[in-house]
């Protein structure tokens, strides 16, 4: 949506210590950069084991930059996820995606289709798990130990009411919505149906990924079904806003690494495609292998279209004088 290279490392690859938590089992820090190589270099710097984060992987950090520079995709099996295309996807987004596939095929990759039926429920599962964990993680912002403290305008000055006023003033609408939704999903009587079921969907999605990685070395999908919507456009329709996360969420739930790479314009706005790699070298054993995060990097290199070239003089594009970004043959090496 932003025309940048965005990286989502394997869950646990970058320490979360120091990052303000939204959803602990989903949060993962990754670089956003102009080029895949920049992103890879940055990723290598921030990755690695941290004893202060219990969910931090102990694997050695692979040479991401080397992988990002690799150009040869000959014989690489690239799996297109059946569920992450078609209905609901903007025409232009799909066209740019096809171009990306063509480019990969031309460079020697083999394109196969994989089936991930549980992805259908990923968005629902995500919008239960994420708000649930966020409602809990954000509970600490109560004006007792640090941060803003707001006193209620009237009525007795009790800690309960001060916390209520503080949190009312400090959180924005979307945050409040997520906190209330998460509080609901975790409350007595609803836990099993909502949070519990969502965690089961998570298992199914992991199984889908494992099966898909039996058939393909990497998976590919558009990053989002549409290009960016206008500022403020969907404020009144949170669900429509959430729907834009549909393609990236399955990997988020499964902890699978991925990278989103700009792939030209659709309706004058940047479109992108995402590549996902298995977080385990050998599913279904699921021991995170040290070489695995390298995979998504290797297919982000030149053969794939990176048409929102980072060397574009007027980068980043900004409305209203958004330039018509040229379809350049620019590559990074």
């Amino acid at each position: 949506m932003t025309g940048t290279v965005g990286t989502k490392p394997t869950y646990g690859s970058v320490s979360r210590y120091g990052a303000i938590a939204m959803a602990s089992s989903l949060d993962q820090i990754g670089p956003v950069a102009r080029t895949t190589e920049d992103a890879a270099l940055l990723h290598a710097l921030i990755a690695g084991h941290d004893p202060k984060d219990s969910t931090s992987l102990t694997d050695e950090v692979p040479d991401f930059a080397q992988a990002a520079r690799r150009v040869d995709v000959t014989g690489l099996k690239v799996g297109v996820i059946r569920q992450l295309q078609g209905e609901g996807y903007q025409q232009g987004v799909l066209a740019r995606f096809q171009e990306a596939l063509d480019a990969l095929r031309e460079a020697g990759a083999e394109i196969v289709e994989v089936d991930c039926p549980s992805f259908e429920h990923a968005l629902s599962a995500y919008y239960l798990i994420m708000p649930s964990e966020a409602s809990s993680n954000l509970a600490r912002y109560d004006g007792v130990r640090y941060g803003h403290r707001v006193l209620p305008e009237d009525g007795p000055l009790t800690i309960e009411r001060v916390m209520g006023a503080t949190r009312a003033a400090g959180f924005g609408d979307e945050v409040k919505r997520r906190i209330v939704l998460g509080t609901y999903a975790l409350s007595a009587g609803y836990y099993d149906a909502y949070y519990g079921s969502a965690q089961k969907v998570r298992t199914l999605i992991q199984q889908d990924f494992e099966a898909a990685f039996e058939q393909a070395d990497v998976l590919i999908s558009p990053t989002s079904p549409t290009v960016a919507f206008r500022l403020g456009e969907k404020l009144d329709d949170p669900l429509a806003m959430y729907l834009n996360d549909v393609a990236t969420i399955p990997a988020n739930l499964a902890g699978v690494p991925g990278i989103s790479v700009p792939g030209g314009l659709a309706d004058d706005a940047p479109a992108a495609s995402c590549r996902w790699a298995s977080s385990s070298s050998r599913p279904p054993v699921r021991t995170p292998g040290s070489t695995t995060p390298v995979r998504p990097w290797s297919v982000c290199s030149p053969p794939t279209p990176n048409r929102c070239g980072p060397r574009s003089p007027s980068w980043p594009p900004s409305p209203p004088s958004r330039p018509r970004l040229q379809e350049s043959e620019d590559t990074y090496d």
């Binding site: 869950y11 646990g12 599962a125 149906a193 965690q199 089961k200 977080s279």
Partner: peptide, 28 residues
């Protein structure tokens, strides 16, 4: 929230009893 919950509540129909829950992407 009514709209959102109406949409996300489908998860309970998507899974059966015997599917184990995954609370975490890491098998550690």
């Amino acid at each position: 929230l009514a709209v959102i919950v109406d949409s996300v509540k489908k998860v309970s129909e998507a899974v059966s009893e015997d599917v184990p829950a995954t609370s975490h992407p890491l098998p550690l």
